[in-house]
Simulated assay, not measured.
Amino acid sequence: MPLRRLAAALLCPVLLALGACGLKPASAFIPSVEPAGIQPVPGLKDARIRVSSKEFTEQLILGKIAVLALKAAGADAVDHTNAQGSVTFRKSITSGDNDLGWEYTGTGWITYLGQEDPIADPQKQFDAVRDMDLKRNHIAWLAPYAPFNNTYAMAVTSAAQKRYGIRDLADMAKVPAGQRTFCVAPEFFARNDGFRGMLQAYGLAYGSSVPAGNVRQMSEGVIYQAIKDNRCLFGEVTTTDGRIQALDLHPLDDSRHFFPIYNPAITVRESVLRAHPELTALFAKISPRLTTDVIRGLNSKVDVEGEDPAFVARDWMRKEGLVK
C-alpha cells in the first residue's frame, strides 16, 4: 500500500495524543444535508448503518461522503470514521463492528487476500478482488469502482516535462544520466517492488544508468516541495495527493503497469447488502464522479487550505447536485 498510509497509521495515534494531527476525530461533526440528486430510499429508511474509514485525509473525505449519502437517503448513518490504519479498519467490518467503508482494490488484493501479483487491468482487478473477498470473507465490493487510482508515481515539474519531453516513466531514459536525479522515501528505496524494481521495469539500473549519488532519500512529506525546488528531477509521490495540484507537479504515466492499481469502492458486509440491496444503486450515483482530478482537489482543500473533511465532502456533494 502507498507508504503515506502506513506512515499515517503509525504516527497519527502519537500525534493525536499530542493534539498535533491537524484534525479532530472524524466522528466529532457531521453537517446536515437535504435530499437532492440522492432521494430518500424506502428500503433504507431509519436503517442503522455504521460507516468506517481509515485516518488519512482522502479516507476521511470518502467516509464523510458515505455518511452524508446515507443520511440523504434516509438511513440512520453512524459515523465511525477515522480508524487507525488498514488492519483496524478492515477488522471492524469483518468482525461486524461496522458495516461498510471505502477500500482500494490493490489493498484488498495484496494486503487482505495475500495475492502477490497485481492485475494490470482495473476492471479485471476489481472483479478478481470482489469475487475472492465475497467467497472467502463475505465482504461485497459494490460496482462500479471509482475511477481514481491512489498509487505510486514519479512526478516532475512543468518545466522539466517541457525540457525533456517526459510524460511516461519510459521517458526517464531520455534524460542524460548525470541529470537523472531522484528523491525517494527510504522504505520505497529499499523495497524490491519500489524504486529499484521500477527502474528495472523501465530498463534502468541503480548504480549504473542511475548513479547512486543521483538518489536522495528523504521523508515522504518533504519530497513534493523538493521536486518543486529542483532538488531532484523525479520524485516519488502518490497520485491523488493534494500537493500535486497545489505545487503544479505532473505524475508520469506507468505504461508498463509496474505499480499496483488502487481504485476505491464501497465494501460492505454481505448480510448488510442482502438486507439493503438499495446500497448498490445509492453509491453508483457517487463512485463514477470520483476521478483523480476530483479527489486531488478535495484532498488539497484539506491538506493545503486547511478545511474540514466533513465540509469538503458536503460542499462537493452539493456542487454535484447530490444533496442540498
Rank of each mutant, 00 (worst) to 15 (best):
G321K: 09
R318C: 14
T238D: 10
I261N: 06
F148A: 04
D254A: 10
A75P: 10
A77C: 08
I139K: 10
F258K: 01
L68C: 08
E220K: 08
Q225H: 04
A313Y: 05
K64A: 13
I139W: 01
R216G: 08
K301E: 15
D79W: 01
A83T: 09
A17C: 10
M198I: 12
F259D: 00
T111H: 13
L204K: 10
L249R: 01
L100R: 04
A153N: 07
G235F: 03
K319M: 13
K124T: 11
M132L: 12
R48A: 13
P186D: 14
T81W: 02
G85D: 05
A205P: 07
T88E: 13
P277S: 10
T105N: 06
L199Y: 06
P35Q: 05
P2K: 07
L204W: 07
T105C: 00
A26D: 14
R196D: 11
M198S: 09
N82C: 15
D127N: 10
M154G: 08
R216C: 02
G297F: 02
T81C: 13
W316M: 01
P211H: 12
N263S: 02
H257K: 13
A36S: 07
T107I: 13
D254G: 12
E278L: 11
D121M: 15
N214H: 09
I61C: 02
V41D: 14
A212M: 11
V222P: 06
T107W: 04
D133W: 14
P31G: 03
D168C: 12
M218N: 11
I266S: 02
A28H: 09
A7K: 12
K64Y: 05
V294Y: 02
E55A: 15
V304K: 14
Y104K: 05
Y202E: 03
R136Y: 07
A20L: 10
G197F: 09
E34A: 08
D248Y: 03
R256Y: 00
P260N: 07
M1C: 05
T291I: 01
R256N: 12
A120M: 04
F29G: 08
P144V: 15
A66D: 13
L11W: 06
P186M: 11
Q123A: 15
L252Q: 09
A66S: 11
D171W: 04
T181G: 03
K301D: 13
S92V: 09
I223N: 07
V323E: 01
R130H: 01
M198W: 11
H138S: 15
E55Y: 05
A83N: 15
P211F: 09
F89C: 04
L18E: 08
G85E: 02
V67N: 02
T107Y: 01
N98C: 15
L100F: 06
G96E: 03
H250I: 12
L322W: 11
